[in-house]
Simulated assay, not measured.
Amino acid sequence: MHKQVLWTIGFLAVLCLVTGFASASEQDGNAEISIDNGINRFVLDGKEFMAVRAIRENFNAHDFDVVTFYVRDSDTWKLVPLFEDYSDKQGAERDLLTVSGGADCVLHDFRLLRATATHPLELVAADRELGKSYADSNIVHFTYFELATNDANIPGRPSLYFKMQKSTVARAQYCDVNEALDKELHLGADSHFSR
Rank of each mutant, 00 (worst) to 15 (best):
K3A: 12
K3M: 05
K3H: 07
V5T: 12
W7R: 13
G10S: 13
G10H: 11
F11L: 09
L12W: 15
L12C: 13
A13V: 10
A13E: 09
A13R: 08
A13S: 14
V14N: 11
L15K: 03
L15Y: 14
L15D: 03
C16S: 10
C16N: 06
C16R: 12
L17H: 11
V18N: 01
V18K: 02
T19I: 04
T19R: 08
T19N: 06
G20V: 03
F21V: 05
F21N: 01
A22D: 04
A22L: 06
A22N: 07
S23A: 13
S23M: 09
S23V: 02
A24P: 08
A24H: 15
S25N: 15
E26Y: 08
E26P: 01
E26D: 10
D28Y: 10
G29H: 15
G29Q: 07
N30A: 13
E32Y: 07
I33H: 01
I33A: 05
S34I: 08
S34Y: 03
I35Q: 02
D36V: 14
N37T: 08
I39Y: 04
I39W: 02
R41Q: 15
R41S: 12
V43K: 06
V43N: 10
L44N: 14
L44K: 10
L44W: 03
G46Y: 02
G46A: 01
G46R: 02
K47L: 14
F49D: 02
M50W: 03
M50S: 14
A51C: 14
V52N: 12
V52Q: 13
V52G: 10
R53K: 07
R53V: 02
R53H: 09
A54L: 13
I55K: 09
I55G: 11
I55E: 13
R56P: 02
E57M: 07
F59R: 06
F59L: 07
N60M: 08
A61D: 14
H62M: 08
V66D: 11
V66R: 07
V67L: 07
V67H: 03
V67W: 04
T68K: 10
T68D: 13
F69H: 00
Y70V: 03
V71R: 03
V71A: 14
V71N: 02
R72L: 11
R72P: 02
R72F: 10
D73H: 07
S74G: 13
S74N: 15
S74D: 04
D75I: 08
L79T: 09
V80H: 04
V80A: 06
P81W: 00
P81G: 01
P81Q: 01
L82P: 01
L82A: 02
F83S: 00
F83G: 00
F83I: 00
E84C: 15
D85R: 15
D85L: 06
S87V: 05
S87C: 06
S87A: 06
D88L: 15
Q90G: 05
Q90P: 06
G91W: 00
A92K: 02
A92I: 00
A92F: 00
D95Y: 05
L96N: 08
L96V: 04
L96G: 03
